[in-house]
Nucleic acid binder design. Structure first.
Lengths: 109, 109
DNA sequence: TTACTATGTGAGTATATTATCACATAGTCA
DNA sequence: TGACTATGTGATAATATACTCACATAGTAA
């Protein structure tokens, strides 16, 4: 059975994975790879309402995936740690593995 | 702006991250690190209803995180690729980074 | 066959997440 | 000061997700 420490760990891990588990949020993370960006730039790049983007950013800050910095009237968001990008690369590797298996399947037909 | 290829990629990446973004499912992935397990063993280890666990397993198979193999009356689930465990390690590193920053904060008080 | 076990699934309810709109706040500049 | 810009947030509705119960299915073994 699971002990309490593990349950807490799994909950925190799930919170982070969940914060990444939305197409818009992944697009934001991808966009932030080359440095911090303000909400207006992010919203324009993503092509979604500012208020919506602002909420998604809040979710990621709360989970600890992003950090933000205020500068005048603008708020700049950036990846909290490069690990987050690694994390996405890991997902990419899972996808690649899937694609390879699909390729094998196709080749065998 | 985002092109269509990227949007599709982000959607697939989000599906995988979302499939991992639940405490029970992370507990399953952790449990499967040392090899395939049947639903009944997983349910007992997790401490949740079989039907519920079965649904969560279905979500992960659908997303491509797990694979299953039928043997007699039992169905054995396992990680589709070791990348999935790496993926969790990445999340762990994000958490570690957070803990370190919290430590620094505490130390400065 | 019958009884049993392991698994999956439909239906229903409870809860969570998302997107949108309108508005509030805070900083900037004339 | 007033007009403007960037951002965040309350309220709402639409949708998705999670959990439970009851039942169906399929394999096993007497």
């Amino acid at each position: 059975m699971l002990d309490n420490t593990k349950v807490l760990l799994f909950e925190r891990q799930a919170e982070i994975a969940k914060a990444v588990g939305h197409p818009l949020r992944i697009a934001v993370i991808d966009f932030l790879r080359d440095g911090e960006k303000c909400v207006c730039d992010i919203a324009e790049h993503i092509g979604s309402e500012r208020s919506n983007v602002s909420r998604h950013l809040g979710v990621m800050v709360h989970a600890g995936v992003l950090i933000c910095r205020k500068d005048g009237v603008k708020v700049f968001y950036s990846l909290r740690t490069p690990c987050v990008a690694d994390f996405l690369s890991c997902v990419g590797r899972v996808l690649k593995h899937q694609a390879e298996e699909n390729g094998k399947l196709l080749a065998s037909l």
